[in-house]
């Protein structure tokens, strides 16, 4: 059984295309320079409609996390870490923290993005500990 697949459609296509290319892309407002996630048809800071995309650093910090011991579906192998990541550019996103012992994860710890295959055609951003604050 596979993990839940996001539907790639509309504005989010640009984001998911970036993931497949190994780049974390965020929406950027040309009017007020705010950077936002998830993608919207307007800037949530200034309500401007003139948006493009920038490549994010892929660095961030853990805002919160949990170790899931009882999986959502058979597609997920326990234990796995679900976390909220505050990206260096500002936006917060949900993701998984991978390739580490769960005991090493704390609120505030530094992480960096890596990309993980979710299907034959789609990769999603997940995070590893970066040993930086």
């Amino acid at each position: 059984m596979s993990r839940i697949q996001p539907q790639v459609s509309g504005l989010s296509s640009e984001f998911f295309d970036g993931c497949n290319e190994g780049v974390l892309r965020l929406q950027h407002c040309k009017s007020c320079r705010a950077i936002q996630f998830y993608p919207r048809v307007f800037c949530k800071v200034c309500s401007g409609r003139n948006l493009d995309w920038v490549n994010a650093s892929g660095k961030g910090n853990v805002a919160s996390f949990t170790v899931v011991r009882k999986a959502l579906t058979e597609g997920y192998k326990v234990p796995y870490i679900v976390a909220l990541i505050d990206l260096k550019e500002g936006p917060r996103m949900m993701s998984n923290i991978v390739n580490c012992e769960s005991e090493l994860v704390t609120v505030g710890v530094g992480v960096r993005v890596v990309f993980s295959a979710w299907s034959d055609t789609l990769s999603l951003p997940v995070f590893e500990l970066s040993n930086e604050r």
Binding site: I4, S12, Y38, V68, A71, L72, M93, M94, W118, L124
Partner: peptide, 10 residues
């Protein structure tokens, strides 16, 4: 559905 559920949050 796009930006949270795929990560398997219960």
């Amino acid at each position: 559905p796009q930006f949270e559920q795929p990560y398997g949050p219960t």
